[in-house]
Each structure stands twice: as C-alpha cells, then as structure tokens.
Design a protein around this nucleic acid. Structure first.
Lengths: 217, 217
DNA sequence: GTCTATATTAAGATAGAC
DNA sequence: GTCTATCTTAATATAGAC
C-alpha cells in the first residue's frame, strides 16, 4: 500500500495561502486530468476550488504555472514504485510487487494517472525532458536488472522494456479508462480492482514462471 | 493484417466535395486525436486540411459535427476485431488472433486509438450510449464465449472481462503512449511493434495454456 | 487577500462578395 | 465553392477598489 500522495514543492508562507494553494491544485488536478491543458478553463478550476478567477492568478502567475506545478509534483511521485524495485530481492516477487504498487496508484490516484495520460497523448510537450532524462534512465537501469534475472534463470527471459510497458499499460488502464471499465462491468462487478489484482497476478506469475518454455515466435 | 480504414458515412455529392470532406476529416483526426475536442481549434484543422476556416463550416455545420462524424465512423470500425472472434474456432488461437488484430489497429491507426482514448479520458460524453449499448453487449457476448472455453478446459480459466481489458490495454498502449514508448526505446528499438508482438504472444500464450495451474491468489 | 470591472486576445460561426 | 471581413462569445489576464 502506497499512501504517499503527490508532493507539493513551492514553499507557502501563511496558513491561508497554504490552504488556498492546495485547494487550487486539487481543483486543477480534477479539471486538467479530464480535459488536458488546452481543453481546461480557468473558470472551471476557479469554480471547483471555490475561489474567484482573479484570486487564482494571485496565487499562480498563469494557467500554465498551475499545470506545470502539478506535472512537476507528479513526475516525482510517479517514479517511486519503479525506484523501489530491488535488484537484491526475489525476482518474481519484486516484479509482482511493482505491478501491485502501480495498480494501487491507479486505484488511489486515478486523476494523476489521467493527467499524465493526457500529457502524453498531446505529445508530452511539457515532460519530454523528464521522460528522456530521469524516466528513461530509471527504466533502462531496471530493465537491465530484469534482463539479468532472465539470463540467470530466476524468471523466464522476456523483453524487459516491454515487460515494464505492459505493467504500465495494464495498471494505468484501470485509471485512464475507468469510465469505460465501469460501464462495461455494470451488472458484473461494482469495484474492478479486486478482480484486476487477481487477474494481473495470474498473468504475470505465469509469464515469469521460469519452468514454462517460451511460447511465442 | 487489417487494411480496412475507418469508414465514411455521410453521402458526398461531387468529386470535389468528396475530396474536401476527406481532407477535413483527415486533418480533424490529426488534431482531435492529439488535443481532444475542447483542446482542438478549428484554426488548426483548417490549416492542416489546407482549407479556410469558413470553408470548413461550409462542409460541416460546426466543430461538434466534425468531431461526432469522426467518432461515429470510428466506433463501428473499432468493434470489428472483437466481432471477428469466432466461438467455433480454436480458443487459444482465436484470442491470440484477436490480440494481433488489435495490435495491428494500434500500429496502422494510432490516431484513431488516441481519439478514442481522449474521449474516454474526458468522461466519454459523446460515446456513452455506444459503450453501454453496442460495446457492452458485444463484450458480454464474447466474454461468455471465453468463460465457456475456460469451463471446458480449452484454455485456463480467467476472468473474461479482464482478459478483454488486458488486450485493449496492452495493444492500445503502443498507440496512445507512442511518444513515451519511442522516447524510452531510443537506443534499443527503432520500431516497437515487432518486439511487442513477440512479447504479447508469449504473455497470452502462457496465460491461456490450460495445463499450467492458476498461480495467483 | 479578495473582489468587481475590464482590457485583450482568441475562437466559433456568419455575411456577403466573387 | 471559396474567399475576406466581421460578428459574438468566451477565455486569459490585469487594474484598482476595498
């Protein structure tokens, strides 16, 4: 269970400033995660935060600044689950635990996931550096660990980059496509996550089980 | 290989109308798939299509009309791969073939995938009925087929709805997060799709292999 | 710090000439 | 059918009172 919410960075001065900044960022997350940067209106954020539009711009210099504050905080938190993948731990359990942490992130912070998805869909104009820098470096590092595990026979040999992509895709899907998932599961499951966890555990357990022979091409 | 592009519906009259309507929808797909409905500007679509803004509105009554035309055509095409899943075919091969068709759709029509993703992220305001109607009915129907296959021992028993979600998530990820995938694979793979296909075949082959015991909880 | 009022620009849509 | 010019609304941002 990962209960650490995305962090605030800028240092607020007074109590009331702290409270209002938080309210704005909370409202902005709600709006930006749904409509993306260009599709979001300051009006909506103002209304959602309970503040007036000029008051928003007293706390932040611009719409862009609010968005970029959210993204910066997010990127850091977003990498934590992968950072925690321990090269010294049990290979299969480490990967499953990573998957579980990512699924918990989707369940507990679906808006953050959608904010990220929106940004990528739009071509990642504001986080390109973070992706080619921090994120790529971290992924390459952990991919090498996973590759080694496969080579040593601790897990079945799989393409480590695509393994990581598949964990992202499968877990984030429940946040990003939540509306669709819930509409389709109507009449079957109220909460998708318990079944999702069971299903994904089975999926990755079988994929990584070292005894089973590679089945694909 | 699925070479059928998303279909046009409205009946064009003259050659030039046909050509211009096509150019507009092509440009609109480019723009809407990236920025979503609210984040897209008619100006951009005009520029991308090589027509003037008023001329766009000669062919379509409004921005909304262009978008809704795209979505309507898309929804139909979108369901084809799942429709083709044959209850009478070989279970494991049918599911793998469905996954392959979806992966080809991501590769050949990534913008369509992103248009859909954008719409769902925004809460599916314009395709809610299509989801609760057509799509849900089709998914429930095919899920029942898959459930039966599991019961009969032709494949390992898995939650069929989540199996379908996982095929969507994994294949669409390569289209929706294409920017991220390519940035991260830089220095490893030029084209992600060949490796993606190998990886996903292994993943689903092992998941569905009836001999392997359920490994999860 | 917060508000009302407003400047300024941008965006969707229309009029009317050609 | 296509263009220029324009109307109208809406959105970001600012000024200045309180």
């Amino acid at each position: 269970m990962n209960d650490t919410p995305p962090k605030d960075t800028a240092p607020p001065r007074t109590r009331i400033q702290q409270k209002n900044r938080k309210a704005i960022l909370e409202a902005a997350l709600e709006v930006f995660s749904q409509y993306g940067f260009r599709g979001s209106r300051l009006d909506q954020i103002a209304q959602a935060s309970g503040l007036s539009k000029p008051n928003l711009l007293y706390y932040f210099p611009s719409k862009e600044a609010i968005h970029s504050e959210l993204l910066t905080c997010l990127m850091d938190t977003w990498l934590d689950p992968l950072r925690a993948l321990d090269p010294g731990g049990d290979p299969r359990e480490e990967i499953l635990a990573y998957m579980r942490r990512k699924l918990e992130m989707s369940r507990d912070y679906p808006r953050e996931s959608r904010l990220f998805a929106n940004e990528i869909l739009q071509g990642a104009p504001r986080i390109r550096e973070a992706i080619t820098g921090e994120l790529k470096a971290l992924v390459d590092e952990k991919a090498e660990v996973i590759r080694r595990w496969g080579e040593e026979g601790a897990i079945a040999p799989v393409n480590p980059h695509h393994l990581i992509f598949s964990i992202w895709a499968l877990t984030q899907h429940y946040a990003d496509f939540e509306v669709q998932v819930r509409l389709i599961l109507e009449g079957h499951e109220e909460d998708p996550y318990p079944e999702a966890e069971r299903y994904l555990e089975a999926l990755f357990s079988r994929l990584l089980a070292p005894e089973s022979a590679p089945a694909g091409a």
